[in-house]
Design a protein around this nucleic acid. Sequence first.
DNA 1: CTATATTTTCAGTAATTACTGAAACTTCAC
DNA 2: GTGAAGTTTCAGTAATTACTGAAAATATAG
Lengths: 171, 171
Amino acid sequence: MFMNLSPLSQEFVLHFGEMGSRWGINRTVGQIYALLFVSAKPLNADEIADALQFSRSNVSMGLKELESWHLVRLQHLPNDRREYFSAPEDVWAIFRTLADERRKREIDPTLSMLRDALLAIPANDEDKFAQKRMTEMHNLIEMATSWFNDVHRLEPETLKQLMKMGTKVTK
Amino acid sequence: MFMNLSPLSQEFVLHFGEMGSRWGINRTVGQIYALLFVSAKPLNADEIADALQFSRSNVSMGLKELESWHLVRLQHLPNDRREYFSAPEDVWAIFRTLADERRKREIDPTLSMLRDALLAIPANDEDKFAQKRMTEMHNLIEMATSWFNDVHRLEPETLKQLMKMGTKVTK
DNA sequence: CTATATTTTCAGTAATTACTGAAACTTCAC
DNA sequence: GTGAAGTTTCAGTAATTACTGAAAATATAG
């Protein structure tokens, strides 16, 4: 199916395509990302289109999407006008970027909607109940995100230690 | 647009519909869940179809989907043959269910694919590099999930305390 | 067992999202 | 400037996913 791709990379790429569609990102974007992730060298758009066998314009759109997620790095190679792309090397950084971006897109808007809703004067008992539920949700999300923000600032090494300690901390 | 829904609940329901489509779940399913979440009483499928103005069969499918996520409770009311649905009351429990279910669907398959890929004999240098990257990803995910499993077992209250301490722990 | 209430399935259709190729635009070497 | 190399846009089309109504299946009261 793919050109110039070892069976190992192929499976990885295909898997990420499928997973991509379970998340918000589509198959194409997932595959492009996976390909960049396992590539030792940065790739240009034509190489990607060639390797994954889809159109040049599709690659262009996919890369734009990945850029909007801050998941790819754009660079230029000496004596080459084309744009080369690669996935950041540090998997912890990738993880943080992803979490951060998802927070921005999925959590923040909900939080702001909830804040507005909680300011409204309840018109009746049903509204009162609904607001109670929304308050619970709001508080949970607020706490989780502020914890996340704290953790976010830690160095990977520190975070690793923290995770390893894990539940021991409770005692 | 919706019948018998206060503006407050309407906005909440609409917002969750939109958010739903950013996650894997579709608009309909998001709306049904939101409706159940803010309802003081359990609702039957007809009430849901009526409130949200979509077909009975669509509601049936949506509820099945929510059941597969363990996000709704099914119950029967005395002297009524119909099935009534509600969202669990404890938002922490909901959060855990959601995280758990996503782990099962999005992380576990990836982990198992990575494990397989790491067992393969690399055919060349490119494969060697690819495997190195996959190992990094594998280790990160493994660590994060095992941490998550630990945390998962804690009581909400303990977890709350832990989160409040947050970064103070590092010192 | 029969009649009725309720839920589920599913084939067909509608709506949405993804993808392509051609054209437009941008960049840069000369 | 001009032209070639590279990139993006976008209208049209393909593919996918969501939704409906009718029919089938299931459950229950009498």
